[in-house]
Simulated scan of single mutants.
Amino acid sequence: MSLAAKNRIVVITGANEGIGYHMLTSLLERGYRVAGLDINGEHISALQKIHPERVRFIACDVTEDDAVTTAIEGIIDDWGRIDILVNNAGVFNFAPFEAQTLADTKREFEVNYFGYLRMIHAVLPHMRAQNEGIIHNVSSGAGLVGHPGLTGYASTKGAIEALVRSLRLELQHENVSCTLMHPPLSNTESAAELGYPKSLLSDPADVGRKLAAQIESTDRVITADWQTKLGLYLSQRLPYMVKKGTERFVSPAK
């Protein structure tokens, strides 16, 4: 157990499965106390039974103002502070633009964008009061370069990119940092819907461990590894690579 991590409190949303869950388990191994927020908590609850002093499952729908406020206040009442927040909860609807309803896109924004905002609004005053804190926001390359069939999801991630750039400017003279976390496309249950070959997908357990290892970073952009960093760089500067890589998601010209 790291002595530096012993009394550090981390909150992760969308923590019951996928990258969020593996971040939680890795942080637990490193000595952190971790509160996992999710609608369902089967996997987190199992860990809580084994480590009741260092793991909490809190049922929380990030689309509900009162649920978010109650969750954060409960963690602070129980553990006294929150040092790090990881905004990770996310949903997407994979379909051509015309097949996606406004309700579909509003749902994506409620979870992926306003869910992040609700968490930040709840946590930031406490971090400012203790004069310390880190707010990580999980983003996606889709928010930088787009992706066919993910117009709503990509829009939410583009909004998160702008949010973090702006909030970092506001917080530049304070000891509270706001970052973007960019995992690679991983072999999660939700990503399977996209139909990418498994050979192109990263192991979510590996990604979770790599991001957990950087949990104390205050860099503006945090990637799981150098391959992800390079991929983001190339996709932004060589857009034909994105077009070529996503052609199979586009209907052929009539």
Results as ranks from 00 to 15, higher is better:
T63G: 05
T101D: 01
Y113Q: 06
A122L: 03
V86G: 10
M119A: 03
A159D: 11
Q130W: 03
L144K: 15
H147Y: 15
P96H: 11
F97P: 10
E64N: 15
A59E: 15
T70R: 15
D66L: 13
D104W: 04
I75W: 12
K49E: 15
N131V: 02
L117A: 12
A59F: 02
L85P: 07
R54Y: 10
G149A: 13
H136K: 05
S139W: 02
I134E: 00
L144G: 07
F109I: 06
L150V: 10
G90C: 07
L102F: 07
L144P: 04
T101A: 01
A89R: 10
I75V: 15
D65L: 08
A103D: 04
D78L: 10
E132M: 07
L150P: 08
D61S: 09
N131Y: 02
Q100E: 02
A99Y: 01
N88F: 08
A103I: 06
I134W: 04
F94R: 08
G133C: 04
H51D: 09
R128Q: 09
I120V: 08
G146V: 09
E53H: 12
R128I: 00
L102A: 07
F94V: 04
V91A: 12
I135H: 03
G80Q: 11
G149K: 12
E73S: 11
L47A: 07
H126W: 01
H121N: 10
F109C: 09
T105Q: 13
G115P: 11
V138A: 02
T156A: 00
I72Q: 01
E110D: 15
I135W: 00
N131H: 09
D77T: 14
V123W: 01
D65S: 11
Y153S: 08
V62N: 15
L124H: 11
R107I: 00
P148V: 05
L102K: 08
H121K: 10
L47E: 05
R118W: 08
V111C: 06
A99T: 07
C60I: 08
W79K: 12
G133S: 02
L150W: 05
V138F: 11
K157G: 10
E132A: 08
D78G: 09
A99Q: 15
A89E: 07
G143N: 03
K157E: 13
M119D: 04
H147T: 02
I84M: 02
A89I: 09
R81S: 12
D65C: 05
K49G: 09
Y153A: 10
E110K: 05
A154Q: 05
G115S: 06
N87M: 07
A59N: 13
A89W: 04
I76H: 05
A154C: 08
I134Y: 01
V91C: 11
G80C: 11
L117R: 02
E53K: 14
N87P: 13
K106L: 13
V68S: 03
I58Y: 12
R118S: 03
T70D: 14
M127K: 00
L124Q: 03
A59C: 10
K49A: 15
T69H: 10
V91F: 13
S155E: 09
K157D: 12
A154W: 10
R128G: 01
D77P: 02
A103E: 08
A154E: 10
H121P: 00
S155W: 02
A129F: 00
V138K: 04
I72D: 00
Y153I: 02
T69Q: 13
